[in-house]
Structure formats: C-alpha cells, structure tokens
C-alpha cells in the first residue's frame, strides 16, 4: 500500500503501458506492415513488377525467326475469321 502511494499510484507507469506503448506499437504496425507490405505491394510496386514481367515475356516472344512471325499473322487471321463467323 505504501509503495502504491509513493509511486504516485503507478499512474505514470500505467499511463505508459496503456496509452503510449500501444500507440507506438500500432504506429509501427501500420507503418511497417500495412504501408510497406500491403499497400505498396499491391499498389505501385506490385503493379510495376507485374508489368515488367509482362514486358519480358513480350520481348521473348519476339524471337527473330521469320516463320514464327508468319505464323502469328496466320493465327491472327484465323482468330479474326473465327470470331466473325461465330458472331
């Protein structure tokens, strides 16, 4: 009882634990996890990675061989024809 009164009812310490520590923890959580991992991952960073991957795939597609190009033309042609027939 004496200790309780001497240490100001542990008011400062309680205050510290309940409000300050949790605010800090929440703040840290929001920052490191939500901001960095979730928002940025899905938002700008994720999107740009996705597009970079698509771009690499597209470049690989351009092989340099004529027969593949000609083949693409014919495939494109057939696809359009099929689409029109099905309409």
């Amino acid at each position: 009882m004496y200790n309780f009164l001497v240490n100001k009812w542990y008011f400062d310490e309680l205050y510290e634990i309940i409000f300050i520590q949790s605010s800090k923890k929440i703040g840290l959580f929001f920052w490191k996890i939500v901001d960095v991992k979730i928002i940025d991952k899905f938002g700008p960073d994720g999107l740009s990675l996705l597009i970079k991957n698509l771009s690499l795939k597209a470049s690989k597609f351009q092989s340099g061989f004529i027969y593949q190009y000609a083949f693409m033309i014919l495939i494109g042609l057939s696809a359009l024809l099929t689409f029109l027939i099905l309409q």
Partner: peptide
C-alpha cells in the same frame, strides 16, 4: 488516426 500513429514511429 493512421497517419498520426505512423508519424509517431518515424
């Protein structure tokens, strides 16, 4: 609320 809490930990 969010931004203030994050600001706290910067």
């Amino acid at each position: 609320i969010y931004a203030s809490l994050v600001a706290l930990m910067q």
